[in-house]
Amino acid sequence: MKYIALIPARGGSKGIPDKNIRLVNGQPLITWSIKQAKACPAISRVLVSTDSEKIAEIARAAGAEVPALRPAALAEDCTSTEAVMLHVQQHWLTGAEDEVIVLLQPTSPLRLPDSLANAITCFEQQGADSLVSVCESHAFFWKHPLQPEAQYDFMHRPRRQDIKPQDKQYRENGSIYLTKSAILQQFKNRLGGKIAMFCMQEQESWEIDSLTDLTIVSTLMQESGL
């Protein structure tokens, strides 16, 4: 298989201005995903899709390819990641059957050194067509605030250590996705066919969407020695 990392990073961000190039633990946010991808022996190329020349300049300096800026029509608030993936596939990739896109969202910069390689190993061992990264979730969910309804049996509230393996729940953490080129074309989605699930540690599962997240992730990265 030929693994190609794709890091989508548009310039606009309402929550945190210039989020993708804000300093996180001393480096621009996007740089972390680029460095992790380049450090993974199985990944042959690292591509960044962006509409921002500033982001493109930082990405190239970190060793990523930015063949061209993304069209403005693919950098709007409502633009889906899949639309960006399909654009990259059409213009920068070959679409060959052995091609696998490794989607790394820059807002999840904390990946431990072996996580990418282990995700690829998981993908191959399971003979998967796509892969999603997750982390264990021990949250108790409710819905309908005006008519509260528990999504668990609150009369028999389970202790974390008593939850059986088959009853554990996992949260999609947004960090790593693998998609065969043919699957992306067929389903127009990052997930399809036989889906593998790769479990990551809780500390790796923070997504930066607010200034609070940025502070927390920076601290976790420092504590992890990254």
Results as ranks from 00 to 15, higher is better:
G95N: 05
A96E: 15
T179H: 03
S133I: 06
N20V: 06
S52W: 00
I58N: 00
Q222S: 12
S130A: 10
S52Y: 01
G192A: 09
Q161H: 15
M85F: 06
E65T: 04
K168V: 08
V134P: 02
Y170F: 15
T179R: 04
L6W: 00
A37P: 02
T79F: 04
S175D: 09
T121S: 14
P106N: 09
A73L: 11
T31I: 08
E136S: 09
M85C: 15
P165G: 08
T79Q: 05
E149G: 07
M221R: 11
L104C: 06
L220N: 11
M200A: 03
S115F: 06
E99Y: 07
T107W: 12
K168W: 05
D129G: 03
Q161E: 15
V46L: 06
I34H: 05
E76T: 09
K35H: 12
I43N: 00
T219F: 10
I58G: 01
I195S: 03
T31H: 10
K143Y: 14
F154M: 11
A96G: 10
G11W: 02
H138M: 13
I30N: 00
V84Q: 05
L86P: 00
R157I: 13
E97N: 12
C78Q: 15
V66E: 01
F140L: 14
I55V: 07
Q147P: 01
H91I: 04
T219G: 12
G15D: 14
L220T: 05
L116Q: 00
T50W: 00
F187I: 04
A62H: 02
I163G: 08
N173P: 01
S137H: 04
T79D: 07
H138L: 15
Y170K: 06
A42S: 12
P148A: 11
P106T: 05
D213T: 07
G11T: 00
P28K: 04
L226E: 13
